[in-house]
Nucleic acid binder design. Structure first.
Length: 826
DNA sequence: CGATGTTAGTTTTTT
DNA sequence: ACTAACATCG
C-alpha cells in the first residue's frame, strides 16, 4: 500500500492508524469518510496482519456494502472477500439463519415487510375485537415499532402503559402481534435486530463465537443507529473493544425509524477511553455551497461543535427560484437539466433532483418524458412491493415456509380459483379447532385436509389442486437442493429458482390472466416478473449454496438505492433520504416549501424541525459544483391545491449567499375569475388571517367569493393539515348542486379499475366532506360586511362560517368592487 | 363467488 | 388522487 500520508490528510491518516480500542470519527459531509473506512480495513490487513475474516464492516445500504468491498478489494486484492461487509439487517439475517432454532423459530422464517405487517395487524384487530376507527392499525404498528426500537417487549410496553386505556389496548395488540408472527414463523424488520440480540443474550457460545470472530468492527453512518443496533454493536465489541464508528451528528435523518442521536453524541460515555477524531475538511463542495449548508445547519442546537471548510473557494452562484405552481417548477428544472447537457456538456448522471416526498417525483417524471430526458427514479413504489412481484414472492414464501399464513392468504385465490372468503373462513375454523398448546395447526395444513373438512365442490377440488401444486414444487426444489436439505443426486432434472418463478407464472394461470388483460400495464407487470426471474438467475450464479429462503431474504432486504444503476447516463430523481452518502456535480433541491419541506408534520415540534433541517443540510451538501433550489406557490397535495410559501430553510440563508428569483406572472387568475386578477393574491401569503388558533371546523382562512350567480366560488381555507389551500371545488359554471360535483376516485380495488378521472363518477357527501371543503359552489352567501379585515359570513349547509379577509390597499379596492357586484345579486 | 358500485380515510422519510 | 373496505346484485 502506498504511503498513507501522501494520500490522506492528517486526521484521516490518524483515523486509519488508530486501530485498537474504541474510536469515534466525526466525519463532516464530504470529508472522505468512506476513504478512511476502506483504507482502515486495508491497513488492518496489510500493516497489522489482521485476518480479513476477523473484520466486520457495517454499512447503511447493501449498495454501500458492495462498493466498500470493491474499494478494499482494489487496495488489498481478493482477501477483501473474507471481510464481512453488510448492513445491520443483512448481518442479523445471516446470523439468525444459522442459529434461530435456539430461540424457537425455524431457519426458513419469513421476513415481513410493512404491507405484511399491516395485513397481520388487521387480523390482530379482528381477533381482539378492536375497532380500527378508534386505533388505527398503522398507529398501533408505529407504537409497537418505536417500542421495539427502544428495546421494549410486549410486557415492558404493558407496564409502561399504566392505566392509559389506549396504550393498554395497544399492548394487547403487541402481544397478539408477536404471537402471530411467531405462529407464521415470521420476523418483521425490527425483529431481525431484536431476535439477534435475544439470541446473543440467550446463548453465550453463539455470542462468544461472533465476539471472537469480529475482532475489528467498523460502523458507518453511526448517527443513524437505533438503540437495538447500539446494543448489538456493544455486545459484539464486548470482547475486544475494537470498535470504530464513523458518522456526522448533523446528518442524522432517521429518527422516525428509531435512530438515536445520543448514540453518537454520547459515544465517549458508552465507550470509555474512546479516541475521537474530527474530519473537517470538505473535499466535495465549493465554498459557496458549503457556506449555505453551514448557514442552515447553524440554526440547530445541541450539535457537536465543528466547522467544515474547503479549499475550493468561490464557485458557481447558488440560486433559489420560486414558481407559480409545481408544474412550472418541474418544467423549469427538467428544462435546465436538458440545457446543461446540450449547452454545457454535462452528463445526465452528473445531476440529481432531490425532493422531500416520493409523490413529488411524478411531475418531474412527466417532464422528463416530455423532454426526452433519460431518468432514473430511486424509491417510490419499490419494485418488490409491486402487486405482481409480491404475488409471486408470496407463492415462494408459502413454498419455503408453510407456516406463513399471510403469504398463503394472499395467493390462495390468485388467480381466481373460486376459493373465496367463506372457504378460507372454514379452513381457519378447522385449523383453530385442531390446535392445542403443543401444536398450532396452520392454515396450509388445514387446506391440505380440505376433503376431510367437508369442503366439497369447486372450492374443494381447487384446494386439492392448489396444495398438490405447492407440494409438487416443494418436492422438486427439495430434490434440487434449494430447500434445507442437500440435493438428491438421483434427481436429474434440476429445478431452479428461476424455473420455479416461471412455473408459478405459467402453471397457475397468473401470467395468462395478465396477458388476457391485454393492456400495457399488464404487459409491464409481465415484464416485471421476467425481471425477478433474471434476479433469481443472477442470485443463483453468485450464491455459494443457493437456497430459496436466502433468495427471498435477499429480495426483502434490498433498499431502493441498491437498485440504482450508475452505468447508465441518466438523471437521478430521488428523495433526500435516498441521497444520503451520494454526491453529484449539480443538484436541484425542489419543493422547498413550508408544509412540504419542512413537512407539516414536523413544523410544530422543535426536535422534528431540527431533523428536517438536517435533511436539508444533507441535501445541500450533496452538491459538488452547482446547487439550485426551487419552490412553487401552489401545488396539488392529496387531491387539492395548496398554497405554500418558500421554506423557512430558504429564509435561514443570508441574502448575500444566494440569488433569489421569483418566477411567476404578476397577474393571477383565480378559478377563472378575471375580476380578481391582479389582486394581492400575487404575494401569495397574505390573503388570510387566522381567526382562532387551532384547526377547528369554523377556524378557516378565507378568501371569498363572488359570483355572477350569487354563489360562492372556490376559496382558500384551512384544510385538515392546517395549511392554506385552495378548494378544488367550486366551479361557478357548474350546474350541479354542491354535493354532486364530479370527482375522480371512481372504482374500487380491481386492477382494471384503478384509474382515476373516469367521467360520470362523483365523490363527496359524507357530510359533504366538509372538514376539508371550503366554501363551494352552491353555498349561498348570506351577508357581507366591509371594513378593515373584511368579514364575510357564509352559510355553509347548516352552519354559519365567518371568514376574514385581509388585503392590501389595491387589492381591497378591487375586492370591494366585486363585493358590490355581489351584493346587488343578493 | 365475483364483478361492479360506493364511500371513507389518507401520506413524509425506509431497513 | 388514490385505494382499501364495504355494499349490492347477478
Amino acid at each position: 500500500m502506498e504511503n498513507l500520508d501522501s494520500i490522506l490528510n492528517k486526521e484521516q491518516a490518524e483515523a486509519v492508524r488508530c486501530t485498537e480500542g474504541p474510536v469515534l470519527v466525526l466525519a463532516g459531509a464530504g470529508s472522505g469518510k468512506t476513504r478512511v473506512l476502506t483504507h482502515r480495513a486495508a491497513y488492518l490487513i496489510e500493516n497489522c496482519g489482521v485476518d480479513p475474516w476477523n473484520i466486520l464492516a457495517i454499512t447503511f445500504t447493501n449498495k454501500a456494502a458492495g462498493e466498500m468491498r470493491e474499494r478494499i478489494d482494489r487496495l488489498v486484492g481478493v482477501r477483501a472477500r473474507e471481510i464481512w461487509v453488510s448492513t445491520f439487517h443483512s448481518m442479523c439475517v445471516r446470523i439468525l439463519r444459522r442459529h434461530i432454532d435456539l430461540i424457537g423459530y425455524t431457519s426458513d422464517f419469513s421476513i415481513y415487510d410493512t404491507d405484511d405487517q399491516l395485513t397481520l395487524m388487521k387480523q390482530v384487530f379482528k381477533s381482539l375485537n378492536i375497532d380500527p376507527k378508534l386505533i388505527r392499525e398503522r398507529a398501533a404498528l408505529g407504537a409497537i415499532s418505536s417500542a421495539k426500537n427502544e428495546g421494549m417487549d410486549a410486557e415492558d410496553f404493558r407496564k409502561a402503559a399504566g392505566s392509559d386505556l389506549r396504550q393498554r389496548r395497544i399492548a394487547d395488540c403487541f402481544t397478539e402481534y408477536q404471537k402471530r408472527l411467531h405462529q407464521n414463523n415470521a420476523l418483521d424488520f425490527d425483529d431481525l435486530l431484536i431476535k439477534t440480540v435475544e439470541l446473543f443474550k440467550t446463548d453465550d457460545r453463539v455470542l462468544g463465537y461472533y465476539q471472537n470472530r469480529f475482532r475489528y468492527i467498523m460502523v458507518d453512518e453511526y448517527q443513524d443507529t437505533n438503540d437495538i443496533q447500539f446494543e448489538l454493536v456493544h455486545l459484539l465489541a464486548g470482547q475486544y473493544h475494537n470498535i470504530c464508528v464513523v458518522g456526522d451528528d448533523d446528518q442524522s435523518i432517521y429518527k422516525f425509524r428509531g435512530a438515536n442521536l445520543n448514540n453518537i453524541l454520547n459515544f465517549e460515555k458508552f465507550f470509555p477511553g474512546a479516541h475521537v477524531i474530527k474530519l473537517e475538511q470538505n473535499y466535495r463542495s465549493t465554498s459557496r455551497i458549503l457556506d449555505i449548508a453551514n448557514a442552515v445547519i447553524s440554526h440547530n442546537t445541541g450539535r457537536k461543535p465543528k466547522k467544515l471548510w474547503t479549499e475550493k473557494k468561490g464557485g458557481a452562484e447558488v440560486v433559489f427560484h420560486e414558481f407559480e405552481n409545481a408544474n412550472d417548477e418541474a418544467n423549469a428544472v427538467i428544462s435546465d437539466v436538458w440545457k446543461e447537457v446540450q449547452n454545457n456538456g454535462r452528463a445526465y448522471h452528473d445531476m440529481a433532483v432531490l425532493y422531500r416526498t416520493n409523490a413529488q417525483s411524478r411531475l418531474l417524471e412527466e417532464q422528463c418524458i416530455h423532454r426526452n430526458v433519460p431518468y432514473q427514479i430511486i424509491g417510490g413504489v419499490n419494485f418488490y412491493q409491486r402487486k405482481e412481484i409480491k404475488d409471486v414472492l408470496a407463492y415462494m414464501k408459502v413454498i419455503a415456509n408453510g407456516s406463513d399464513t399471510i403469504a398463503l392468504e394472499r395467493i390462495i385465490n390468485v388467480p381466481k380459483r373460486g376459493i373465496g372468503a367463506s372457504t378460507i373462513q372454514k379452513l381457519h375454523m378447522f385449523a383453530e379447532a385442531n390446535s392445542d398448546a403443543a401444536h398450532q395447526m396452520t392454515l396450509y395444513e388445514a387446506a391440505c385436509r380440505a376433503d376431510t373438512i367437508g369442503i366439497g365442490g369447486k372450492a374443494g377440488r381447487e384446494l386439492k389442486k392448489f396444495t398438490e401444486m405447492i407440494e409438487g414444487y416443494r418436492d422438486k426444489l427439495r430434490r434440487s437442493g434449494y430447500l434445507d436439505q442437500e440435493a438428491d443426486p438421483k434427481f436429474k432434472e434440476s429445478f431452479t429458482i428461476q424455473d420455479l418463478i416461471k412455473s408459478i407464472r405459467d402453471d397457475t394461470g397468473y401470467g395468462e390472466e395478465l396477458r388476457a388483460e391485454g393492456e400495457i400495464e399488464a404487459e409491464t407487470r409481465f415484464e416485471n416478473i421476467d425481471e425477478i426471474v433474471s434476479k433469481a438467475a443472477s442470485y443463483q450464479a453468485e450464491a455459494e449454496k443457493p437456497k430459496l429462503s436466502e433468495f427471498l431474504e435477499e429480495v426483502s432486504l434490498v433498499a431502493d438505492i441498491d437498485r440504482a444503476d450508475e452505468s447508465k447516463d441518466t438523471l437521478t430523481l430521488m428523495t433526500l433520504h435516498g441521497a444520503k452518502g451520494l454526491e453529484f456535480p449539480k443538484v436541484y433541491l425542489v419543493g422547498m416549501s413550508d408544509g412540504l419541506f419542512p413537512g407539516y408534520m414536523s413544523m410544530n415540534d422543535p426536535e422534528d424541525l431540527e431533523e428536517e433541517r438536517r435533511l436539508c443540510y444533507v441535501g445541500i451538501t450533496r452538491a459538488e459544483q452547482e446547487l439550485v433550489m426551487t419552490s412553487a406557490r401552489s401545488r396539488m397535495v392529496n387531491g387539492e391545491y395548496q398554497r405554500m410559501k418558500p421554506s423557512r430553510f430558504i429564509d435561514e440563508i443570508p441574502d448575500q449567499l444566494i440569488t433569489k428569483e421569483l418566477l411567476y406572472p404578476s397577474r393571477v387568475d383565480i378559478d377563472g375569475f378575471s375580476d380578481f386578477s391582479g389582486t394581492p393574491f400575487d404575494d401569495g401569503m397574505d390573503m388570510g388571517m387566522r381567526r382562532n388558533a387551532g384547526n377547528r371546523e369554523d377556524d378557516r382562512f378565507g378568501r371569498v367569493i363572488g359570483g355572477h350567480t350569487g354563489t360562492v366560488s372556490g376559496s382558500y381555507g384551512v384544510n385538515s393539515y392546517g395549511l392554506r389551500g385552495m378548494g378544488s371545488t367550486g366551479y361557478l359554471e357548474s350546474k350541479k348542486p354542491s354535493g354532486l360535483r364530479g370527482r375522480s376516485g371512481a372504482g374500487a380495488t380491481g386492477r382494471k379499475r384503478s384509474g382515476s378521472g373516469i367521467p360520470g363518477y362523483m365523490q363527496k357527501t359524507s357530510e359533504q366532506r366538509l372538514s376539508s371543503l371550503d366554501y363551494g359552489a352552491g353555498d349561498r352567501v348570506r351577508h357581507v360586511k366591509f371594513g378593515e379585515g373584511t368579514v364575510v359570513s357564509v352559510v355553509d349547509g347548516k352552519k354559519d362560517f365567518e371568514v376574514v379577509v385581509d388585503f392590501d390597499k389595491a387589492g381591497r379596492k378591487k375586492m370591494f368592487a366585486s363585493f358590490a357586484k355581489l351584493r346587488k345579486l343578493l
